[in-house]
Design a protein around this nucleic acid. Structure first.
Lengths: 230, 230
DNA sequence: TTTAAAACCTGATAAAAATCATATTTTATT
DNA sequence: AATAAAATATGATTTTTATCAGGTTTTAAA
């Protein structure tokens, strides 16, 4: 569903990559971009496909995932409003190395390749910002590799819950509710969903989380941090 | 041990980040940099320390690793001649997120922070190249997360051997010899060294590798690729 | 060259986690 | 509100892999 969102009115434009654009360029961007509403569970782009531009998240949450063995999905990270999607493929001139799927109703703007490069070339701040973002993502990814290699599932799940706590807190609501299926949680942690369910009950027993249906409430961040060993 | 290597004579300068520099700047770089010889096993920099510049590998191989649980080391990647080390910390203005340790005798040049930024600012090609490199590293890292999450040790070891085959082939010698301790191999794959040893014997039985002391010879790349499922 | 210290190898055992099976609850749909 | 479908939960079992313990070989150093 095509919708219209003016960049100057966009709640994320100040914190996003385009925060440094002058009003004129921002207005121009608004006219050039297209903006869509995606229902929860819809695919924004598929791994392996050729990129034609980048996506800027206006609202909602999006899981970035890779297909592994026998189609099993690995969630690499969760993107939130202000994040750009498809940056790497565009920079490296390669096909998408992962898929983007909404995990809640989301609004995402699309900026085509040429327009994006035209803008970034005139704003070196954007390039710098991209480099910094990539650096940070790489640090996080390497940290995750280390966790996957060395930590047992219980610790990794605690780690994931803390990450999700930040992700789901980002919209500013005071008491954070994580709304993610056990399957998705398992695909973040790298385990079976039965194992996630069992460990979640353990955490519940230890009063570190509360569970209401699909929803997970973080009650004891410090406790989880202790379990995760961070 | 301080040694003197002229950038124009450096065998990697053409393929390195500084390949685009004009002769004058390259000469200037030579005067500003310092160049050291490191024995196998020496530390170039430590995780957590503040960066003061970047390192450019002239010769040798260097493991990039993070400290995990109880000091257990996780090898994130292996850097080869032409690679820059410490880039991310410099860009992001953070401390080193990992350590760099030589796995064979190496020669590494050091360029201080200011000099590096002075140069890169005048050569946008370098910024672009950095972005492309970071993008690729991130793709590789995410692929590794997926492997760690979904593949059993046997498959991951096959994968690691194929990666090492490329790394150790890079100097141009025809028949590749991987010279890496079982411990290091285990720290790449994310397993115990006993498991590596056992699986290596299996691969030997199946005529996919040959082992002579510490040295590993890859005999059947296709076979390993089949095992690794790539 | 001898000796010490690492690194490597092998087997037995234990722990962690996956898989399978099946029941129950929640959510979505008519 | 009733029904179907999907997701969640729990137990039993098996597989994978780590850990421990003991050897042997290789490497490094006196």
């Amino acid at each position: 569903m095509l919708i219209d969102i003016k960049c100057t009115d966009c709640p994320v434009h100040k914190i996003s990559y385009f925060g440094c654009l002058d009003p004129c360029d921002l207005n121009d961007l608004w006219h050039k971009k297209t903006c869509y509403f995606y229902k929860k569970g819809q695919v924004i782009f598929y791994e392996g496909k050729q990129p034609v531009g980048i996506y800027c998240i206006n609202s909602g949450k999006i899981k970035i995932c890779k297909l592994g063995q026998e189609g099993k999905e690995q969630i690499v990270r969760i993107a939130i409003p202000g994040d750009l999607l498809g940056l790497r493929s565009l920079i490296g001139g390669r096909n998408y190395s992962n898929s983007a799927i909404t995990i809640e109703d989301s609004v995402v703007c699309f900026i085509n390749k040429r327009k994006f490069f035209q803008t970034t070339i005139r704003y070196p701040e954007i390039s710098t910002r991209i480099m910094i973002t990539l650096s940070k993502l790489l640090d996080v990814a390497e940290q995750k590799i280390t966790s996957m290699a060395q930590k047992p599932v219980r610790e990794r799940l605690a780690e994931a819950l803390l990450t999700l706590n930040d992700v789901f807190h980002s919209d500013g609501c005071p008491n954070t509710v994580i709304s993610l299926s056990r399957e998705d949680l398992a695909n973040m942690v790298g385990t079976a969903n039965e194992t996630v369910i069992r460990l979640l009950s353990e955490f519940k027993e230890e009063n570190m989380v509360a569970v209401k249906g699909r929803k997970i409430f973080i009650l004891d961040k410090l406790g989880l941090r202790r379990v995760a060993k961070i």
